[in-house]
């Protein structure tokens, strides 16, 4: 897969996650966009790969955050301890 497609794919993943962002879709979309634009001039292939790795890490973090938030809400609602 070309790096360009790789970057677009991980960006789309973030947009997909943004639909569930607590403060609204636009907030996370804009933040992601800004973060991606900072490195738009990057041409070093190695560095681009590292940056993609970082974006993928962020995707995993957001997923984990959502699952934890759901778990905690349910725990508070259904279990009194």
């Amino acid at each position: 897969m070309s790096l360009r497609r790789h970057v677009l794919r991980v960006y789309k993943q973030i947009l997909y996650l943004a639909r569930d962002w607590p403060e609204g879709y636009v907030v996370l979309r804009d933040r992601a966009k800004r973060a991606f634009l900072i490195n738009r001039e990057e041409t070093d292939l190695r560095k681009i790969e590292t940056l993609i790795g970082r974006a993928e890490f962020v995707v995993k973090e957001i997923e984990a955050l959502y699952m934890l938030k759901k778990y905690r809400t349910l725990k508070r609602r259904y279990y009194k301890e």
Partner: peptide, 11 residues
């Protein structure tokens, strides 16, 4: 609730 932690349905 504590049976497991479900995975996320990724894009």
């Amino acid at each position: 609730l504590r049976l497991n932690e479900p995975r996320y349905a990724t894009l």
